[in-house]
Nucleic acid binder design. Structure first.
Lengths: 159, 159
DNA sequence: CTAGAAGTTAAAGTAAGCTTTAAGTCAAGC
DNA sequence: GCTTGACTTAAAGCTTACTTTAACTTCTAG
């Protein structure tokens, strides 16, 4: 018997409600970010629950998380059960930290700009914001302004 | 006569000092972000000025600007002349705005999370942070939390 | 003058995150 | 029962931002 829950949604319905294209939904499923039941004919039937996950995914992507990171964070949530307050709270804390870090980095960069680009000086020797490399060479290696999270996404040859 | 300025730098030197791989420097040149003179034998010879542009490019990339955007912003700078205080100031303002927007978006998202995910409610009908789509359906279209800058980079099928 | 490090090009490859295509199947209304 | 819109799959294609490769040339120290 392959009966599907009553309130189940087709891919088109989920697409309309979530704002993701059907192709994206299938992609997310292949990538293990969401799941779907199947109708007797083999078509996808989503639980309403998936809309929350998708909303979460959307927001996470906006913040700059990769799908890998999103998957990791979502790993802390049950897929089939309605997440409890504790579930979301756990996730929330992971995310909150990321946001704080990112905000901090941007503020530092902005303030750095104000006193660096803004003034027109742009001294290669002194501008820590604009010249991490030269600073690193002069004062030793390590982070200058940006926390890891913002530096990691950049290519290998760059560090 | 194809004599090159005295203080000119080879691709390897620029790579070491800027932290970009030589291949990235060539790529940036093809993309019109930087330029180089040539030695009599046809090898690249960079003016020291390029280091500033590269530092700027690095910082811009960290902030999430695409190369297209960077090119656009750099378009406001002269390529061969030493940029004046006014040049940098103009650029700085463009950038400052972008940073402010981005910070604002992240703060809004974070604060939204505090009262939305954080509390464990996650109501599909009421959570504006996590459910822009449903909100849009219920209250009409338009931005919910994120300013354009943070929403644009996402795929077409998404909006 | 010559060895070897460093540089040159065009073209192909990579990774993420999807979309598009082609060829075919399912579901629902008349 | 049939039409039509929605759905299915695998595979290829796309964009950004580079890197890698291959075959070859230039530069510099000895």
């Amino acid at each position: 018997m392959r009966t599907v829950a009553q309130g189940s949604l087709t891919v088109g319905e989920v697409a309309r409600r979530s704002g993701f294209a059907p192709s994206a939904l299938r992609y997310y499923e292949r990538e293990g970010l969401i799941r779907a039941d199947r109708s007797d004919g083999g078509q996808r039937r989503y639980q309403r629950l998936v809309l929350r996950r998708l909303a979460f995914i959307r927001a996470a992507r906006h913040v700059g998380l990769t799908l890998d990171e999103v998957r990791e964070v979502l790993g802390a949530l049950p897929e089939s059960r309605t997440p409890t307050r504790a579930d979301w709270s756990r996730i929330s804390h992971l995310w909150r930290r990321r946001l704080d870090e990112q905000i901090e980095a941007l503020v530092a960069l902005r303030d750095g700009l104000d006193s660096c680009i803004g003034c027109g000086c742009l001294s290669l020797k002194r501008c820590r914001t604009l010249n991490p490399q030269d600073v690193a060479a002069a004062y030793g290696p390590g982070a200058v302004y940006l926390p890891k999270r913002l530096r990691q996404p950049l290519a290998a040859g760059e560090g």
